[in-house]
Every structure is written in C-alpha cells, then in structure tokens.
Design a binder for these strands. Structure first.
Lengths: 362, 362
DNA sequence: ACGGCGTATGGCAGCGCTAACATCATGGTA
DNA sequence: TACCATGATGTTAGCGCTGCCATACGCCGT
C-alpha cells in the first residue's frame, strides 16, 4: 500500500516522528466519540456538542445532519469527559441510613421525581447507621463532584461536617431539625413528634406509658425520640416511673416488635399504653397480641411512629404519628434545584411538621 | 495599578501574547488538585496518583509525605478525571422497577454488600415499570460508562437490548430466566414457582383456586405468573373454570390486596383458595378477613408470593413462595466482579430456584 | 459605501487525571 | 568489571469533552 510506504519513508528521514502504533493507544475499544460524529456529519466537534447541549444555537439544517449522524454512529456521550470539561456532573448524591427502610425510599422517590425531569441523576449510598461509613461515603461521593448532596440526619462526625462544608456543594440535611445546619435543612422535630403522641396518650387517660424501640448506635433520630419520651413523661405523668424497653442493636423488623412486646410484658406488666419508635415494631407487637388474645386497646393500648400503610389495615388500626417522608424528598429536590441553577443562593430551613393520627389501637 | 500598566504595554507590543488573565481560567473555584498535592509533597503528580491507587509501588518514606500532604491540603480526588484517563469508572449501574419495592431493595443490598468492598459504587435508577423510561435510563447510565450493569427483568425494548449489547459492558439480567439473555442471568423461574404453589394447593385438596394480582403494564414478571396460573389450572383441575381477578394498574400495596379480596368474594364466591401474586396483597386480604370474621383457612385459604417478613407474623401465618431476593444481588455482584476484574470472561446463567413455604393460611 | 450588529460555526486550549514509557539508582550475578 | 534485573520516580501525551474566543456571513441603518 502506498500510504504505508510514505509513512516508512518519513520515519527514516525523521526518526523522532512516531511510527504509527509505536505508542499504544489508550482509547477504549470501539467507542464512538464526539469527533467521530463530527467527521460523519462534516461539522466541527464543537457544533456537535452544541447540537446536544444547546440546540437553539444551531441551525435547523445542521441540527438535522448531526442528529442523523448520532443515530447512525450509535454515539453515547461520555459524561465523565463532559463533567470534567464543564465542571458540572448533573448528579446529586443521596446518603441514607438504609435503602430498604421504606421511609427513606419514599423520600428518594420524591427527590427523584423532582430532579430527574431537570436532567439530574441520583447517586445513592447507604451508611447502615455507621458514622464511619458515612464519612467514607461522603468522601467517595465528593470525588464524583455532585452538584448537590442530600443527606439524612443532622449529626455527623466532625470530619464529615468539615468535608461537606469545604466542598462548596449545596447540601440538604433531612429528617430532623438543628440549630446549626451545614447548609440547608428539611425535616420535622422528632422531639416534638414524640412529645405530641405522649400528650395524646395522656389526654386519652392512659396512666402507665412505656416506650419501646431499638437504640442502634448511629441512629440519632431514634435516640432523640427516646430522649424526648424520657423528658415528657415526668412532666405529664408526675411521679410515674419512666419505662423504656430497648432491643439494643436489633434491626427494625416485625420480629423485634414482637420481642419488645414480650419484654415489656415481663418487665413492666403495669403498662397500659406501649409506645413504639416505629410502626414496624408496633405492627409486629399488634399481630402478636392478636395471636395471644391480648385485647388492644382494652388490655393494652399501642402506638407507632411513621404512619406506614400497614397501620391502616391492622386489626385494630394503629394510632401513630404521620411524618412527611415523601415531601421531605420533593422539598429537598426543589431547594437543590434552585441552588444548582443559581436561581437562589439562599439556604433554607424548612420544618414540615407532623401529625398525630388517632385510630383504634389507642 | 502597575501590573495593569504592564499588561497594557505588553498587549500593545505583542497583542498575540496573552496578558495574564486575558483568558479566563476554567478551573473550578478553590479546588485542590493532584498537582497541588504533588507540589506540596515535592514529588511528581504521578507519584501522588500511585500513592493513592497502588501504594505498594511507592516507598514508605514518600508515601508518608504524600499522605500528609493530602491531609493538609484536604485533597479529594476528582473521579471524573480519573475515569476519563483510566477508562474505568468504578461504578455499577442498577436498573430496577421501583426503589420502594422491598424485594428489589433486598437485592440491591446484596449487590452493594459484594461490590462496595471492591471499591465499586452503585448507581441506582428506577423505571417505574415503564419500558420507555427504562430505555432513557439505560442511555443516561451508559453515558457514565459503568463497569457493569445490573438490570431487573429479561424483557426490554429492542433499543434497550441493542444499546446494552453494543455497550460491551458486562450486563446481568435478574429475576427471571430466558433462553436469550443479553449477557448473564441470575434469577428463578416465575413460571415454575407459580406452578409449584398451584400444585401445593391441589395436593392440599383445594378444588376452586382463584388467582389475584395487578397487571401493571411493563411488569412482565407479574404477567408471567398469571400466565403460569392459567396454564397450570386446566392441567391440575380438569373442568374447573380458570378464575383470575385483576386490579389493573394499581400499585402493589395492602389496600389493593383488600380490594382484590372484595372482588373475588363478589365475582367468585365458590373460591376455596385465593392465590395472590404478592405477599403484600395476601397480607392486605388476610387482615381484611380478620376484620370481617372470615376464617382463614377454613372459610377461605390464602397464599402469597415472595416470603416477606410480615407473612411469618400474620395471624394465621402466610403460606407463600420464598424467592432468593438477597441472593440474586450477591450472586450478581460476584459475577460482575469476576467479569470486571477480568478474572473470568464467561457469561453465566444462574437459576437460584425457589421454595414453597407451607404455613397456616393454606 | 460603511461600520455595527446578530447568528452560525470553527479553532484552541485545557479540565484533572493516568497509561505508557523513560530514567535513574541499586544490588546481585556472571 | 560489566551486565542486567529490580524498584522508585519522573516525563510525556493523551482520555473526550466544553469554555472562551475568533471568524465568517448576512442584514440593517445611516
């Protein structure tokens, strides 16, 4: 082939000039790039880029050709390169304690509902309630340069807080309130919510409340709820013992609820209203009551926390506290969008409140 | 200011030479880069890179200094740049129908459990059972150049299949079996599973089975389960009408289960075993039976699908089909790891099976 | 006829990192 | 002593894309 001949001749004359293939290419195999599309459409790479990102600036005629070329070549833009060049990743990082906990799944759903139409993608990581893991996760996620961060909780390690503050990325802390947020805040007061349901129990005439939950290390919201109970009881029930049953680090499931009921009956048989830190526990306990023939609420009243769907279907239906899971996600999404579009530079602290849902079980 | 004066003079003499700051920097504000760390530690950038990625190749002495510099400068690696240069993103994309569905959350948990220790991060997207959305999601995710893809289901649009095939990325389809996978496959036969529980009902002596589920468009696994029921009944119950109650596009929740029970009692009062497409429906129906005083299984037997935790706590406990949710995730994770490390180039088709769990409700 | 303006496109450089290769000091071996 | 294998570090040249600016062209008003 004549072209080969030319190349060889050249390399004899000027050995400094690389022979084709002397240095191995670093390109990934078979990947269509923006340049390929540009060549195919006979326009500059810049025009292809514009056709994708700001089609308004490209003439109808050119746009047609570029689109056809993209389709024909099967081009898929490399967002890592785009991210690097434009310094925007079009991603939002979401850090939650557990994927399988439905409350957080609801919030993520709300978050995605707002962000996806604006072209943002969600990076999800779960900490399993371990602060050390949270820090690791924050570090790893920051490496991907998200345009926004959604994180459950207001209590983080000093390092985590520092990392987030220094990152200059809009951060939304969710699910609780605090006086000193990293940036913005969307949630409700776990403390007030528990207080409200203790007051409810008091008004209904119950006299011997017991609180039951798991005190997983790292679950600061659960801890806040327990503390709030311990604070409210002496005020509302003067002279009454403050009874708390704790399953330790157990997972949040129906089985744990059952065990918590068991322990309560053994340790505090005088209990007339058993207040759970989660509807899941309450449901497990309620079903166990059905099995054992304990009449709810006559023998023992039960309350939950979270207003999960099952509460409306249990027999008897469950008295609980409704919490705006989904709304936490949508509000957070809207706040983030405003910040990321530079529509607003303001941080916000949104208290979405809660409500006591009185049903049959108490 | 004198520096301004100099700049002007220079531009008069040699306008082609850029005055400092004439072209605006594109760097993101205040970001510490690998070069900054290198300068701080007085080593080359490459050595810093090695210190992070392959510390074995760096001397103890240098490593110490680099680590100190990283800490002091607060350096956070830019993974977009790393990704671009190395052609590895260290991410796996997971595409599931719904985040809030616990079965998929379990699988994701399993997947993460395997991938996270190996340094891979999970990108999660939900399709809401819409094939068009699935395609969009696949396209967007491919743009991030994941090293592996986990996708629920074996039925995809032609475009989706084509995109995934052409991407050359290891793909695992999950939750069902097929003769023609895109790449690898981890799941169980929804068809056989339903058949097994119909056989179970037959052996237990039930004579008038009815199937109840929602037939959401896009949920091919639900459709397969229904079809399997329609296939099994004529064989096992010759002469018996094939009764199917369908809630249309309702969401999978307890309320729908209740409505399905309602409809069944109206349309097919002869039913002696009601077989649900999900434990969630079964639980909703079972609770409604309790409320109405319908005795289970004496007046009506009930079966579910999925072996959710609640089934073990309902009164009566729920007969169902156990399905290896978590294991689907872990096995998929292991297969992906092997492919991504180039330990194995082989595709695999893994049938994890299922098992009928006989409890009190049937 | 001319400069000024808006629209469409192209050229250049660089985002922050790493693969590939080059270099340089060791130490052991023939 | 010359030689090469080994380990530690440096140099070069991109990865694929977009920000910024330059350029080309037609249109308008004066």
């Amino acid at each position: 082939m004549s072209s080969d001949g030319v190349a060889v001749a050249e390399s004899l004359i000027a050995p400094a000039v690389e022979a084709p293939g002397a240095r191995q290419s670093r390109r990934s195999t078979n990947t269509v790039t923006l340049d390929d599309v540009a060549r195919h459409a006979q326009v500059s790479p810049q025009t292809v880029s514009r056709s994708i990102r700001t089609p308004d600036l490209v003439s109808e005629f050119t746009l047609e050709r570029v689109r056809a070329s993209i389709a024909e070549t099967g081009y898929v833009p490399n967002l890592a390169a785009s991210n690097l060049a434009s310094n925007r990743s079009m991603t939002v990082a979401a850090i939650i304690p557990a994927i399988s906990a439905s409350v957080f799944a609801d919030a993520l759903h709300g978050l995605e509902e707002i962000l996806a139409p604006a072209g943002y993608q969600l990076f999800i990581g779960s900490t399993s309630y371990r602060p050390a893991h949270e820090e690791e996760l924050v570090r790893a996620f920051l490496g991907r340069r998200p345009d926004g961060i959604f994180i459950v909780g207001t209590e983080h390690s000093a390092n985590t807080t520092h990392l987030l503050r220094e990152s200059k990325v809009p951060v939304i802390e969710a699910w609780d309130l605090t006086d000193d947020p990293i940036d913005s805040l969307v949630g409700f007061s776990n403390r007030d919510a528990i207080r409200a349901i203790v007051e409810f129990a008091h008004e209904r005439g119950y006299r011997h409340p017991t609180f039951a939950g798991s005190l997983q290390r790292g679950d600061f919201r659960a801890a806040a709820r327990r503390a709030s109970f311990e604070e409210a009881v002496p005020e509302l029930f003067p002279g009454e013992t403050v009874r708390v049953v704790d399953s330790g680090t157990s997972t949040v499931d129906y089985e744990t609820g059952r065990r918590l009921l068991d322990e309560t009956l053994k340790l505090h048989p005088e209990t007339d209203v058993l207040m759970f830190a989660s509807d899941v526990f309450a449901a497990g306990a309620l079903l166990e009551c059905t099995r054992r023939g304990i009449r709810v609420p006559d023998d023992l009243a039960i309350t939950g926390f979270g207003d999960f769907e099952i509460g409306r279907h249990l027999v008897p239906t469950l008295t609980t506290v409704a919490v705006p899971n989904r709304q936490i996600g949508t509000v957070a999404g809207e706040l983030l969008l405003a910040r990321m579009n530079h529509t607003s530079a303001e941080t916000a602290e949104v208290d979405l409140g809660f409500s006591v849902v009185a049903r049959e079980s108490a």
